[in-house]
């Protein structure tokens, strides 16, 4: 019977390392959470907010051959999450800006409910090719915003468009998605 005992042992050994492999891959899924951001940073792949080499581009803003007169249109757009009874509107829907020049645009935020509510704005740039060339120096989206009941507040955004902006782009849109926060996390809409 030693042959069957031997077969049993071999089967168990194969089973255990396959089981560990499966568990390892389950862990790998979770390891992707930090690794994903790391890979994008290390390889310089464009992440969604294109922060990787913003500093270098901004350092050269306003000098060199890129500083010649070039103007682009910047449009502003905001979308409120259905759970959030706010409105946030730019004072001007679109402005012409010179590349390399820092500009301020004011957004007016208003809470239409009587309770104090915290929200978070998520910025995005369209077209995405412009992502690395648009820098916000000051923005209400950098932190969570709390508006007291029926409060009305001015929220400034200061930004620069880099002179390295690809020449085929003459217009770009800064868009905010504003979501409601509850206990530090996004409220799940039901």
């Amino acid at each position: 019977m030693s042959e069957t005992a031997d077969l049993g042992r071999r089967k168990r050994r194969t089973m255990w390392w396959l089981g560990l492999l499966a568990l390892g891959m389950f862990g790998f899924g979770f390891a992707m959470v930090p690794l994903y951001g790391l890979i994008c940073n290390v390889t310089g792949m464009q992440s969604v907010d294109g922060m990787s080499d913003l500093g270098r581009r901004m350092a050269t803003a306003g000098e060199g051959p890129g500083a010649e007169e070039r103007w682009v249109t910047v449009k502003f757009d905001t979308t409120m999450h259905p759970e959030l009874p706010w409105s946030i509107n730019p004072m001007e829907g679109k402005i012409r800006v010179r590349l390399g020049e820092s500009r301020v645009v004011n957004f007016v935020a208003e809470n239409h409910s009587s309770q104090s509510i915290t929200g978070q704005a998520i910025p995005s740039i369209a077209p995405w090719q412009a992502n690395g060339f648009f820098s916000k120096l000051e923005c209400f989206c950098f932190s969570q915003q709390t508006l007291a009941g029926n409060e009305r507040k001015d929220m400034p955004v200061r930004f620069v468009v880099s002179p390295d902006l690809p020449p085929e782009i003459d217009s770009l849109t800064l868009s905010y998605n504003v979501m409601r926060l509850q206990g530090g996390t996004l409220a799940a809409a039901q």
Binding site: L21, A22, L23, M25, F26, F28, G29, F30, M32
Partner: peptide, 18 residues
């Protein structure tokens, strides 16, 4: 064995987020 556990991890995170 290599890929199904990764999906399981993904939907587990979805469950945690929810």
């Amino acid at each position: 064995i290599l890929v199904v556990p990764v999906l399981a991890g993904g939907v587990t995170m979805l469950l945690f987020d929810r």
